[in-house]
Design a protein around this nucleic acid. Structure first.
Lengths: 209, 209
DNA sequence: CTTGTTGGCCAACACTTGTTGGCCATCACC
DNA sequence: GGTGATGGCCAACAAGTGTTGGCCAACAAG
């Protein structure tokens, strides 16, 4: 499986737009199309899940031919991998007042979930697609676990505490953004923070019961 | 959409096994096959989700012809509806010591989830299938909401508290049984009760923050 | 102007899906 | 024994899927 960042497109040996400027690698004419495909893919995966988000539908949304998707991303799996490359940008919990880590995390995840439909796409797919599930486990392992480690002194307890935090945050995201329980949708963000904040705080810092 | 209990099979006007006994409606010769189909369907839906759980695969598991599935359940949607008819059997929270409702609920859901793979099937499907999502909203509305109402005096707060409970319980079920985060799988049930019990207790009985 | 590369589309392939209709064996009942 | 319903399978259909290869226009380099 190709990494999320590389494409299966022909290697860019020579830059058609002249020498690469100092601002980054050469911008190709097709970059706009590539981005349009990724946007459409995220939207479709978030709305329909993996199987029903067809390449034809994604291509139609991006206003290009389905075969272009294959040329740029190799396969549907490659497209998915590229579309849901997520960086949670979890703040450094060790740099915060210890009593506020719970509330901070809840606020952060609410914001992330709302502004990035990629999370909805990822979890919708993860529920019924092995590759998607593996991707979420990677997220947990590589991003949440290290963050929790910064706030929990006993390394032995880190996985359990991180799992509890994940269950709570992911559970609320699921009920609100994926399953769309009306009661979860209608809660104000401040209420959510007030309820979930202390829970996450306890999972992170309370002594093992 | 047919109700979960009725099938699209030809109406049983005359009982082939003689007059109906006092133990219930006539047992038909095909009942074993019907049950085998439902079992196989639950297993496949739980393992693969809606789209990849093909009727052909389900029929193969049940050792019958795919066309039988159509005859007995009308369509794939009808089969799904029949396969994931779930009764959570939530205990009457008003009959319990008020301080134990949280722990009781957590224990109850852990048991339900483990012994009934139907929950895994339902939530796996719900994440990417509108009909499945609607089904989970019905579960929330018709089974969890009334249970919470029995323990919460203020009707105005019931939906929010129920949503929080659902988020926590469903979130853990998701991480352990659907996404299979190792850290969530390895937690002992008693640890889960010790951590989640107080959370659910607070969501149910603590004063509005 | 020629030439080679890049971006793009069209048409098709091979396969799987849900679904349907027809045919045959079995069994209860007259 | 006849007869009709019931349980079951086989073969096919139409639609939709991911994927592939070939063709064409635009444009930069020589």
């Amino acid at each position: 499986m190709p990494s999320p960042t590389d494409s299966t497109a022909p290697a860019d040996t020579t830059s058609p737009t002249g020498p690469t400027g100092p601002t980054g690698p050469a911008a190709r004419r097709s970059d706009a199309t590539r981005a349009a495909i990724l946007d459409a893919a995220r939207e479709r995966f978030a709305a329909d899940g993996y199987e029903r988000a067809t390449i034809r539908a994604i291509a139609k949304d991006a206003r290009i031919d389905p075969s272009m998707v294959m040329r740029y991303y190799g396969s549907k799996e490659g497209l998915f991998a590229a579309a849901v490359a997520v960086d949670l940008r979890i703040p450094d919990l060790a740099a915060l007042p210890r009593a506020t880590v719970g509330e901070t995390l809840v606020r952060h995840f609410l914001a992330q979930w709302r502004e990035n439909e990629v999370l909805t796409a990822l979890f919708r797919v993860a529920a019924s697609n092995p590759a998607g599930a593996e991707r979420t486990r990677g997220l947990f392992r590589d991003q949440l676990l290290p963050a929790v480690r910064r706030v929990c002194p006993d390394p032995e307890q880190v996985p359990a505490r991180a799992a509890l935090v994940a269950a709570q945050l992911l559970g609320f995201g699921l009920t609100r953004f994926v399953l769309r329980f009306p009661a979860a949708v209608e809660l104000h963000d401040e209420e959510v923070v007030a309820w979930l904040g202390p829970t996450v705080q306890r999972y992170l810092t309370a002594p093992h019961p």
